[in-house]
Amino acid sequence: MLKILKYSFYDLMRSSWSYVYFAFYLVLGIVLLFLNNNLSKAVITLMNVIIVLVPLIATIFGVMYYYSSKEFTELLLAQPLNRSSIFLGQYFGVAISLSMSLILGLGIPFIAYGLLKSGAIWDFSLLLITGVFLTFIFSALAFNIALSNENKIKGFGYAILMWLFLAIIYDGLFLMSLIIFEAYPLDKVSLLGTILNPIDLSRTLILLKLDISALLGYTGAVFKQFFGTSLGLIISFVMLMIWVILPVLRINFKSRKKDF
């Protein structure tokens, strides 16, 4: 698997997309720091961007890489390699190179601005960690969708829909259900609803760490109680882990049964 990972990684490092992604984050980091003139504020603005954009980019990139490396995959399939190492190697190649672009692209301007000496370092690290989690989750989901769809256009369509659902529609439905059932005690339900969506989970996690949960009102208090404790933090990370592991297992399972 490591050999495949190496080749996928090199392949991606040479493609201009990784640099575009890297440059995008670099510019974003610089602009945010310049506009906010304050590390902590820049971190908050950055969160809103990361929560939405990282999943989108990971999704598109994952689907695109799978389809464009089809030839490479077919070449590898005829070699004495087992299938899970081919597909997992490619998946980790994509996820790792995207994560690297994210970490380096945002890390460089923030460190240059004096992050290491400021108090925002933990918030910033948490932001990057969730960003990396989201990259791994959404590129795995994208690989799943691509593996199940021979047709590129369909694959792209489903992948974008998936992102749209988790990033936007889910929130809408969630909010509507809270309004409809407002007569009932909903703190547990809303907690569960948050945990089941990796984007919501990441957002809540970061908001609470940034200590702006007061904005969330009563539910915020419940959340604070849950996420603020070390148990809450552990559960959130475990959930994010599960969100990575399940799609990866399905990549493994699906790839073993597929015809090429």
């Binding site: 030839e71 077919e74 005829a78 070699q79 087992n82």
Partner: peptide, 19 residues
């Protein structure tokens, strides 16, 4: 997958990674 060490395969359409 190890048995494929014994096989050399020439695919029908030579599709290689283009870059």
């Amino acid at each position: 997958s190890i048995y494929r060490h014994k096989i050399d395969y020439l695919p029908q359409i030579a599709n290689f990674p283009s870059n």
